[in-house]
Simulated scan of single mutants.
Amino acid sequence: MQISTLHQEQNKIIKILFSEYYEKAELDLPNDMELREFAYQPFDSETYVRHLSFSSPQELRQYILQNVPLHLYYSSARYQLPSAKEMDEKGWLGSDLLFDLDADEICEVKVRRFCPQDGYETLASNCNGEPPIEYAEITTECIMKVFEKALLIRDILKEDFGLNARIFFSGNRGFHLRVTCYEDCALLDPDDRKEIAEYFTSPKPPVIYEGNPGWSGRIAKGIEGINIDTQVTIDIRRLVRIPGSLNGKAGLMVVEIKNDKFEYGEWLSPFDGDCIFLPYVSAELTLFNNKYTVKRTYPIKIDTRIGVYLALKGLGKVKAYVR
Score class of each variant (00 low, 15 high):
residue 193 R to T: 10
residue 120 Y to I: 13
residue 21 Y to P: 00
residue 180 T to S: 11
residue 144 M to K: 14
residue 82 P to V: 12
residue 42 P to V: 04
residue 98 L to D: 01
residue 87 M to Q: 07
residue 78 R to T: 12
residue 206 P to D: 07
residue 307 G to V: 14
residue 66 Q to L: 13
residue 44 D to P: 02
residue 315 L to F: 01
residue 127 C to W: 10
residue 75 S to W: 01
residue 79 Y to H: 02
residue 302 I to F: 05
residue 103 A to R: 12
residue 64 I to R: 09
residue 199 Y to L: 01
residue 289 N to Y: 04
residue 236 I to K: 06
residue 213 P to A: 13
residue 283 A to W: 00
residue 201 T to H: 05
residue 49 V to K: 08
residue 56 S to Q: 03
residue 130 E to N: 13
residue 196 I to R: 05
residue 52 L to G: 03
residue 108 E to W: 01
residue 28 D to K: 11
residue 304 T to V: 07
residue 291 K to Q: 14
residue 255 V to T: 12
residue 103 A to C: 15
residue 39 A to W: 01
residue 111 V to G: 09
residue 5 T to W: 11
residue 249 K to H: 11
residue 233 T to I: 06
residue 151 L to F: 08
residue 12 K to Q: 15
residue 103 A to N: 14
residue 101 L to E: 00
residue 240 V to W: 02
residue 304 T to N: 07
residue 185 C to R: 05
residue 112 R to V: 09
residue 94 G to V: 11
residue 122 T to V: 03
residue 200 F to N: 02
residue 207 V to N: 07
residue 194 K to Y: 15
residue 211 G to F: 04
residue 215 W to H: 08
residue 319 K to D: 10
residue 190 P to Q: 11
residue 62 Q to A: 10
residue 151 L to P: 07
residue 87 M to G: 02
residue 144 M to I: 12
residue 183 E to D: 12
residue 203 P to I: 00
residue 151 L to Q: 14
residue 33 M to F: 12
residue 35 L to H: 00
residue 32 D to A: 06
residue 44 D to L: 14
residue 214 G to I: 13
residue 311 A to M: 02
residue 36 R to H: 04
residue 152 L to C: 09
residue 262 F to D: 03
residue 291 K to S: 12
residue 57 P to N: 09
residue 289 N to T: 08
residue 156 I to N: 05
residue 268 L to E: 08
residue 99 F to P: 06
residue 12 K to D: 15
residue 98 L to V: 02
residue 323 R to E: 15
residue 297 T to C: 03
residue 7 H to L: 12
residue 59 E to D: 01
residue 242 I to D: 01
residue 322 V to H: 12
residue 285 L to D: 08
residue 177 L to T: 08
residue 267 W to A: 15
residue 236 I to M: 05
residue 243 P to N: 09
residue 234 I to H: 01
residue 300 I to Y: 01
residue 216 S to A: 15
residue 154 R to G: 13
residue 199 Y to M: 03
residue 189 D to E: 15
residue 22 Y to G: 02
residue 258 K to Q: 13
residue 17 L to D: 00
residue 281 V to H: 04
residue 174 G to M: 04
residue 40 Y to T: 00
residue 211 G to T: 04
residue 13 I to M: 11
residue 56 S to F: 06
residue 259 N to V: 04
residue 38 F to Q: 00
residue 17 L to C: 00
residue 256 E to L: 00
residue 316 G to A: 08
residue 160 D to H: 03
residue 233 T to C: 08
residue 83 S to N: 13
residue 234 I to E: 05
